[in-house]
């Protein structure tokens, strides 16, 4: 049986976490955040809100558990294959003209889509002149990404996605299987830099030609979404690209006027000249 979590209790928790640890969930999408915290209470068997509150305030290590639960880490390789096909055919030819390609993958979770990007770059012979900065709020997810070890059971689906995205190689050549896990080829990781970064509070740290942020903004309310779009805008060179999740859009943001969606229905926008 699930314990009811009231809106006031959720506010209290958000305040506690903000004051004590500096993580600000105040502008996260409310409905989803509510579900995540309610789920945390169920899964970790808290019998009351007071107990959860005490645990969070008194146990620093439990914060990472909270962050792990709140930051939804559901992801897959070549998620929405047509997005990756569009990157390959429409965006990479433009990126290829730069001497050094800088890509920011914001909210990369456990890294499946970062490896997808690295595979695409490698096949387009662009990996050696690219740097992918892969960031996430969740250190636990980042350590999974860094290790590049994933369940073998997922590979069938990823392989289908890869083919649907226009992949022509043997997908299994990108990993080595051992028992029920696979390890991604280390040749893919040499151009990836992992770091924690909190989109709600941290600032711009470089300039990029491509920013990927997929299925992250759906967890933010419009205020925070707008903050993030400004952060991306500050971090994107003129004529650079932003790629979002399949149900996300730049259209409610105040930076929208400087961007144009590329042809087709894929969620990629190009910035105008600065």
């Amino acid at each position: 049986m699930q314990i009811e979590l009231t809106e006031d209790q959720l506010d209290t928790l958000i305040d506690d976490v903000q004051r004590q640890y500096g993580y600000d969930f105040g502008d996260y999408a409310r409905a989803s955040l509510h579900r995540r915290i309610a789920r945390l209470m169920t899964v970790d068997r808290f019998v009351s809100f007071a107990e959860l509150r005490y645990r969070i305030n008194s146990d620093k290590d439990y914060l990472s558990r909270l962050i792990d639960m709140v930051s939804v880490n559901v992801t897959e390789m070549f998620r929405d294959p047509s997005f990756y096909a569009a990157l390959r055919t429409q965006i990479f030819p433009v990126l290829a003209t730069y001497p050094l390609i800088r890509i920011w993958h914001a909210g990369c979770a456990s890294g499946e889509e970062v490896y997808s990007m690295a595979i695409l770059l490698k096949e387009s012979k662009l990996l050696d002149k690219s740097i992918i900065y892969a960031t996430d709020i969740n250190p636990t997810a980042l350590s999974v990404a860094r290790a590049g070890i994933y369940p073998l059971a997922q590979m069938q689906k990823y392989s289908e996605n890869y083919v649907a995205a226009g992949g022509a190689e043997d997908f299994s050549s990108y990993y080595t299987a051992q028992y029920d896990m696979v390890k991604m080829d280390t040749a893919l990781t040499k151009r990836i830099v992992y770091a924690t970064h909190n989109l709600a509070t941290d600032s711009s740290f470089n300039e990029f030609q491509l920013i990927i942020c997929r299925n992250v903004l759906i967890y933010f309310n419009q205020t925070l979404q707008d903050r993030v779009f400004h952060l991306f805008d500050d971090s994107l060179e003129g004529l650079g690209f932003i790629g979002l999740g399949s149900k996300e859009s730049i259209r409610f943001s105040t930076v929208e006027a400087s961007y144009q969606q590329i042809a087709g229905k894929d969620k990629i926008w190009r910035k105008g000249k600065k």
Binding site: A29, R30, A31, S32, R35, V72, I218, Y219, S246
Partner: peptide, 21 residues
Amino acid sequence: APADYHLLFEPDGSFALDSSE
């Protein structure tokens, strides 16, 4: 409601998507 997302509503009534378990 799109495939592969949960569909929720924000306090202002707007749609919010969620791809959790």
